[in-house]
Nucleic acid binder design. Structure first.
Lengths: 204, 204
DNA sequence: TGTTGTGAATCTCTTCACAGCT
DNA sequence: AGCTGTGAAGAGATTCACAACA
């Protein structure tokens, strides 16, 4: 089981490596990848070690091999599907972001209580009423929920997602949600993030 | 200088405390706040210690005093102003989120290259062309930049913000930006976040 | 009794530093 | 010569555990 922080960096590495690959580069040294990712070379080597991939002192790491190795750790071979709840500005932004980005991970359904949004398709993703959540989750084999609903609805939405069977939640609402310990939650708290920036913009 | 992680939790505590305050509660124990924030009681006490506030074994912490103490650490007495660059779905969501939330920290101007967006006012915030960035930043005394532009524009936007004089950046673009070490950057990387959730949704 | 404040212990993450390789 | 892989050291963050207190 790879630790939290390492997974985050591997995700970043993969994107950087894919870009390099598109530029025709075929191998990379830890210090180069480190510079691009804004971390140290030792960190990069450790992270790569943790996924059981190895380079060679002459040529560094083979790009294709490394990208595949990361995929083997991060991706589910059968793919994973996510549901978005809340199709406001933020929800639409999230759909745009993720649409067709990764073959093994996609948002396949959206839910909103506003009847005007239901039935519409945004970024190849159809919007349903939240009452449809349970059956759609099982029908489409969804294991991930993305909460982009207002703060007041976040806990109820989380409960519904958990009840429907998702095991991971990405929470954009500015409140902490309570879930069983079997469910993994990642908070994307803009308020905290901006306050942090404000603090260090002064103190640095 | 309070560490990064502590600042993040203090920001969360403040929101929780404000909510409690609105419910008429007047004091709180570390274990109560801990339960709401999803951390341990010892952690809460350490965090509160780090801002030089103290409670009392009988009544715990006085809500009002604690909230003010957090404010004294997190907020600039003169207030801080931020600029948003990129007024797409995400940019509008960000404006909605922050509009009128904190008196000491607000987004006071938005910038976008699309001429159709310029001149319009969203959430009390006027949108300008990006060419206006330098003079608006100094005119409005803006010290924080929020990047909600496409990945391809992120580095250029960051350069413009830094050049205009901001010392903190909240970056929503899915790429790392390069800035002088005097500038603090916080990344809100949705791609990484979703990939992390996907991983732990499987492994947990 | 049940809480705070905090030194010490623990745990986790990162960096150092260098042997071993090409 | 310059890189990787990694044990060991170091730094940072969290939790333990308990004296002091109301």
């Amino acid at each position: 089981m790879i630790p939290d922080k390492t997974i985050g960096r591997l995700s970043l590495y993969r994107r950087l490596l894919n870009r390099l690959c598109g530029e025709g580069v075929s191998n990379v040294y830890s210090h180069q990848l480190a510079a691009m990712a804004g971390v140290t070379a030792a960190q990069v080597r450790r992270d790569i070690m943790s996924i059981g991939c190895s380079g060679n002192p002459n040529r560094g790491y083979e790009l294709v091999e490394l990208i595949e190795s990361i995929g083997k750790s991060l991706d589910d071979p059968g793919g994973q599907r996510a549901a978005l709840v809340g199709v406001g500005n933020l929800g639409r932004a999230i759909l745009t972001y993720f649409s067709g980005r990764r073959p093994k991970l996609s948002i396949v359904a959206a839910f909103d209580n506003d009847p005007r949004k239901c039935g519409r398709v945004t970024q190849g993703c159809r919007c349903y009423g939240v009452d449809r959540l349970p059956d759609m989750v099982s029908e489409l084999d969804i294991t991930i929920g993305v909460i982009a609903a207002p703060a007041n609805d976040a806990q109820r939405v989380a409960d519904q997602l958990v009840h429907a069977g998702v095991t991971g939640i990405l929470n954009f609402a500015p409140v902490r949600i309570r879930v069983p310990s079997t469910v993994y939650v990642e908070d994307m708290d803009m308020t905290t993030a901006l306050e942090k920036v404000a603090y260090f913009a002064r103190k640095k």
